[in-house]
Computed example of a mutant assay.
Amino acid sequence: MLAAGVIGAAVMAAVDEIVFHQILGWHHFYDRSTPAVGLLSDGLLHAAELLALVGGFFWFADLRRRQGWRRLAGWGGALAGAGAFQLFDGLVDHKVLRLHQIRYGVHLLPYDIVWNVAGALLLFAGVIVLGRARANGREAPRRR
């Protein structure tokens, strides 16, 4: 579950960085300085996300090799990790630390609602899937 959570958070960070920072150009990871510092902060975020992604997949490969990987727990962990990253970004980075906003020059409330509700839904879906994985793990082995 934790390996997949790291992968899910890294994938969500990549989606955020690629879509909102690069393609749409709505913000940088750190917007409270010069554009050069904003670009540097995006590069550091991208490097951290890639390290997490590679580390998560090495962890995943080790679990598979040791036959410790559980598919349902993995999906739950990935969804929960993605949702946790998105909620952390939306609540802590955007509102508490004010590192950046989703978009500038617009009324933020609709963007904040969509961003945080989507993150909460991903996290909730992950928790539901993890609950099912846990329940399946408690069942007696099926005889064939």
Rank of each mutant, 00 (worst) to 15 (best):
A125V: 04
R144F: 11
V11F: 12
V6M: 12
W75E: 08
V19S: 04
V129K: 08
A4E: 06
R144A: 09
R98V: 10
I23P: 07
M1Q: 15
A10F: 02
R98Y: 05
Q101D: 14
V129C: 09
L99H: 14
A4H: 08
V92D: 01
R103W: 06
A9E: 01
L24G: 00
L109N: 06
Y104I: 05
T34I: 08
L40G: 06
N136Q: 15
Y30R: 00
Q86V: 00
A3G: 07
V114D: 10
A140W: 12
D42R: 07
A47F: 11
W75D: 06
L2T: 13
G77M: 05
A9H: 00
F29W: 12
Y104D: 01
W75S: 06
V92I: 14
E139K: 11
R71E: 12
H107R: 12
V106Q: 02
L108H: 09
V106A: 12
H100L: 02
R64H: 04
A120D: 09
R142T: 14
R132M: 15
Y104R: 00
L108G: 08
D16Q: 06
W115H: 13
H46D: 14
V6S: 04
D31A: 10
L72P: 05
E49D: 13
A133R: 03
L63I: 03
I7E: 05
A125G: 14
I128S: 07
V15W: 10
G77L: 03
V129T: 13
Y30I: 05
K95P: 01
L97R: 11
A125E: 09
H94T: 01
A14T: 12
G5R: 04
A61N: 11
G131A: 10
Y111F: 13
K95I: 04
H46G: 12
A125L: 13
I18D: 08
L44N: 04
L44M: 13
R65Q: 14
G8K: 00
I113F: 06
A13I: 00
L123F: 15
G77F: 08
F57G: 03
Y104K: 07
D31R: 00
R70H: 15
H94A: 06
L53Y: 05
V114N: 09
I7R: 03
T34Y: 00
A73F: 09
I18K: 08
L72T: 15
G43C: 04
A78K: 04
R66C: 00
L91E: 10
R138Q: 12
P141K: 01
G43D: 03
R132N: 11
V19N: 08
V129P: 02
G76Q: 03
G68F: 05
V96I: 15
A125I: 07
A36N: 12
G81T: 05
H94Y: 02
V6C: 10
F85G: 00
